[in-house]
C-alpha cells in the first residue's frame, strides 16, 4: 500500500464526554453547516435533535415491504393451491385463506426484516473499506471511548481557519486535520 500523498478533507474535533458533544453539535448546526457528522462509540440520546436530523424512513419502508410480503404470500398460497393445481383437502374451500394466515404472517416478517437489513446497508453507507477517519488515525479513539465532530471540506461554509475557530468556540481542546490517503492500492480488498 502506498501512502504517498495526504489530502486534507476536513477537520475533526474530539470530545471526552457525550454532553459536551451535544452542546458542540448544536453550535455547528446553528452555524449552518450541512456536510458534517458526529462519530460516537455508542448512540447518544438527543444527538439527532442536536444535529437537526430528520427521523429515519425505515419504519415506512419496513411496513411497505411487509405488506408486499403478505401479498406475495397470498399469491403464492392461493395461486398454487387454488388455481394452478387445485386440490380439495378435508372439504375446505379452495381459497381457504384462514389456513394460510401463518404463512402471511411469516412472509410479512421475512420481507420486512430483509428490507431493514438492506436499507441499513444503503442508509449507513456500509460496505466501504477506507475512510478518512481511519487514515487520520482517530477511528480507534472513537470506537474506544471518545466523541468526534467532523466538518467536511466540501461544505459551502468551510474554510480551514473558520472550522477550527468554530470547534474551539464549542470548547473543543483536541482539533486535528482530517486527511485522506491518495493513490491507495485498493487491490488487497
Amino acid at each position: 500500500m502506498s501512502k504517498s500523498r495526504e489530502k486534507v478533507v476536513g477537520v475533526v474535533g474530539l470530545y471526552d464526554d457525550p454532553s459536551s458533544l451535544l452542546r458542540a453539535a448544536e453550535g455547528v448546526r446553528d452555524a449552518g453547516f450541512t456536510r458534517w457528522d458526529c462519530h460516537t462509540p455508542f448512540p447518544v440520546h438527543g444527538l439527532d435533535r442536536a444535529m437537526g436530523l430528520k427521523s429515519s424512513p425505515l419504519p415506512t419502508l419496513a411496513l411497505t415491504a411487509g405488506l408486499i410480503g403478505v401479498l406475495a404470500a397470498f399469491v403464492l398460497t392461493g395461486g398454487l393451491n387454488a388455481l394452478h393445481y387445485p386440490i380439495r383437502i378435508a372439504g375446505k374451500p379452495m381459497l381457504s385463506w384462514q389456513a394460510f394466515v401463518p404463512i402471511y404472517f411469516e412472509m410479512f416478517v421475512l420481507f420486512s426484516a430483509l428490507t431493514i437489513m438492506g436499507s441499513l446497508f444503503v442508509f449507513c453507507g456500509l460496505g466501504r473499506w477506507h475512510s478518512p477517519l481511519h487514515d487520520s488515525g482517530v477511528m480507534s479513539e472513537i470506537t474506544g471511548a471518545r466523541f468526534a465532530i467532523v466538518l467536511g471540506a466540501d461544505d459551502r461554509m468551510y474554510s480551514q481557519a473558520d472550522a477550527k475557530t468554530l470547534l474551539e468556540a464549542t470548547g473543543c481542546r483536541d482539533i486535528r486535520p482530517l486527511v485522506q490517503f491518495e493513490e491507495e492500492d485498493d487491490a488487497i480488498i
Binding site: 457528522d37 448512540p43 436530523l53 429515519s56 477517519l133
Partner: peptide, 15 residues
Amino acid sequence: GWKGSNRAWSHYEKA
C-alpha cells in the same frame, strides 16, 4: 466499515 457516524446511528437504532 462501521464508523459510528450519528447519521448511521440514527438509522441503526430505528432498525
